[in-house]
Lab assay of single mutants.
Amino acid sequence: NKFNKELQWATWEILNLPNLNEEQVKAFIDSLRDDPSQSANLLAEAKKLNDAQA
């Protein structure tokens, strides 16, 4: 389904953001699992944090 694909994509993207530490990655992945419908928003937040920590 749509959420499953978005969840998989967001998870992959977050795992590959180079500037997030392990705790941050875990927190984003946990949030994705808690509410897959928020995957686009969570991915945007993760990318923003990744850029800020570059």
Rank of each mutant, 00 (worst) to 15 (best):
N1H: 03
N1I: 03
N1T: 03
N1M: 01
N1G: 07
K2I: 15
K2G: 15
K2W: 15
F3R: 15
F3Q: 15
K5W: 04
K5Y: 03
E6I: 14
L7T: 05
L7G: 04
L7Q: 03
Q8F: 06
Q8S: 06
Q8L: 08
Q8I: 10
W9G: 03
W9E: 15
W9S: 08
A10N: 03
A10Q: 03
A10T: 13
T11D: 03
T11I: 14
T11R: 05
T11Y: 09
T11Q: 05
T11A: 09
W12Y: 11
E13P: 02
E13F: 06
I14D: 02
I14Y: 01
I14K: 00
L15M: 12
L15Q: 14
N16F: 04
L17T: 01
L17W: 02
L17Q: 04
L17G: 00
L17R: 00
P18I: 09
N19S: 07
N19W: 12
N19R: 03
L20G: 00
L20T: 00
N21H: 09
N21Q: 10
N21T: 12
N21G: 08
E22F: 10
E22D: 13
E22T: 09
E22R: 12
E23D: 10
E23M: 07
E23L: 12
E23N: 11
Q24R: 01
Q24P: 00
Q24D: 04
V25F: 03
K26R: 10
K26D: 12
K26S: 10
A27P: 02
A27V: 10
A27Y: 09
A27L: 11
F28M: 05
F28H: 01
F28I: 05
I29N: 02
I29Y: 03
I29F: 04
D30W: 05
D30T: 09
S31K: 14
S31R: 10
S31W: 12
S31Q: 12
S31G: 09
L32F: 03
L32Y: 02
L32I: 07
L32H: 01
R33A: 14
R33S: 14
D34W: 13
D34Y: 11
D34F: 10
P36E: 03
P36L: 13
S37W: 07
S39R: 06
S39W: 15
S39N: 13
A40L: 14
A40Y: 11
A40P: 06
N41G: 06
N41I: 11
N41S: 14
N41E: 12
L42G: 01
L43Q: 03
L43P: 01
L43M: 08
A44F: 11
E45I: 09
E45P: 00
E45D: 08
A46G: 02
A46K: 00
K47G: 04
K47D: 02
K47L: 08
K47A: 05
K48R: 12
K48L: 13
K48N: 06
K48P: 00
K48M: 11
L49Y: 04
L49K: 04
N50V: 01
D51E: 14
D51H: 07
A52F: 10
Q53L: 10
A54V: 09
A54E: 09
A54H: 08
